[in-house]
Simulated scan of single mutants.
Amino acid sequence: MISSINPSMKMVAVLLPGILLGLTYDVFTPLMYFIFILIVTFSMTHISILRWLKLFSPFLMLAVSFAWMTMLYANQTFSGGQEMFRFWLFEVTSGSFQTGVSVGLRSLCFGALSLLFILTTDSTKLMLSFMQQFKLPPKITYGILAGYRFLPVFQHELQTLRQAHRIRGVSRARGIKGSVNQFRRYAIPLLASGIRKAERVSIAMESKGFTDDADRTHYHNMTVKKRDWLFLVLMIGVLIAVFVLSYYFGYLQIFGRQF
């Protein structure tokens, strides 16, 4: 399963296809790879379809908006072809329509790849992998991990502050001035609490030896195994195969240039 893949290798396997897809401006290439991402997501993970659709819906709305704006404001390089329809003062040609659909499909690919990485990656293993595979200093990785762990704490403290204000009769602010004052009432205590927590964590990390020493030992060793390389080859290899098919059928476009 993808959740057992080394996080660093998984990140490379997600980033490289995303970068390469950003070069294409045809419809066939991102559409085929998006279908492949869906197959990988629902066949090699335990992600439920309903949960995935709920998380993917914002990406879908962004993709539609990107496609529509690209159709209306495509430059001369991509706006060739016959006129398909008019919207108010805007003329949508076959070239701008194809470019807009391509941009939308690429956005869907980026969103699907992001969800595939986020929903199958443990944050602790990701930081450990950064430290062991990418040689990121332990001071930075553990600091990021500690900050990430503080997010639920800050959320709980914010709820406590709101309840305390409500008990003391402080009503919800109205207007711009009231919103600014309310923000100050919440921000100053949270900032003070965050500074105190950061100082305690810094002292604790330094006392426990979390320095920039690159030769430190690890309780959990993150290694790159054969399955990690196979996953990387699968993600990039399928994209290359899609590029070849797109070129063979005459669909491939790189920055508006037909190949």
Rank of each mutant, 00 (worst) to 15 (best):
G194K: 00
V103W: 10
L145V: 13
G194V: 03
M205W: 05
F78E: 08
L38N: 15
A112E: 02
H218R: 06
D215Y: 13
L113W: 04
L62V: 12
Y148V: 15
T160E: 15
F259Y: 10
R166F: 13
H46W: 12
S202H: 04
L21P: 01
F183A: 13
N6E: 00
D26W: 03
F130E: 00
S114W: 02
V92C: 13
E83C: 13
G104D: 01
P138Q: 12
A74F: 04
L31I: 01
A214Q: 07
W229S: 09
L15Q: 03
L115S: 03
A63M: 07
F90L: 06
P138M: 08
L230H: 02
P152S: 07
S3N: 04
V170M: 02
I37Q: 09
F56Y: 12
T24M: 00
H156A: 06
F150T: 13
T217Y: 04
V103A: 11
Q155T: 13
G80Q: 01
S107G: 13
I144N: 01
T24H: 00
G194D: 01
D122M: 09
M11S: 11
G111P: 00
G95T: 01
F259Q: 01
L105E: 02
R200P: 14
G175K: 04
L126I: 08
K225Q: 11
G256T: 06
K197W: 14
Y142L: 13
G111C: 00
A13V: 12
Q133D: 05
G18E: 06
I19P: 07
F56G: 09
Y186E: 14
Q159G: 13
R149A: 12
L108K: 11
A164D: 04
P137K: 03
A164C: 05
F259R: 00
Q98Y: 06
L191F: 15
S79D: 09
I254S: 01
L136S: 04
L38C: 11
T223M: 09
V101K: 02
T211C: 00
M222I: 10
F117T: 07
A192S: 15
H156M: 14
I254M: 05
N181G: 12
K139A: 05
L55S: 14
V201K: 03
F28C: 09
S8I: 07
G22S: 10
G147L: 07
V224I: 05
G18C: 13
F36Q: 10
M69R: 06
D212Q: 04
S43W: 14
V101P: 12
M9A: 05
S202T: 04
F85W: 09
S123F: 06
N6D: 00
S94E: 06
I37P: 13
Q253K: 10
R184F: 14
G237I: 14
Y186P: 10
V12M: 06
V238I: 15
R174A: 02
I188S: 06
P152G: 03
Q159F: 14
G22H: 05
M44T: 14
R216K: 11
R257P: 09
M44H: 09
G209T: 09
V238R: 08
H46M: 15
M69L: 15
H218D: 11
S202Y: 03
I188L: 15
R106A: 08
N6M: 01
F87A: 12
Y25S: 15
V244Q: 09
G237F: 10
L31Q: 01
L116P: 13
G143I: 06
L230R: 07
M9Y: 02
M127V: 03
T120Q: 07
A204Q: 02
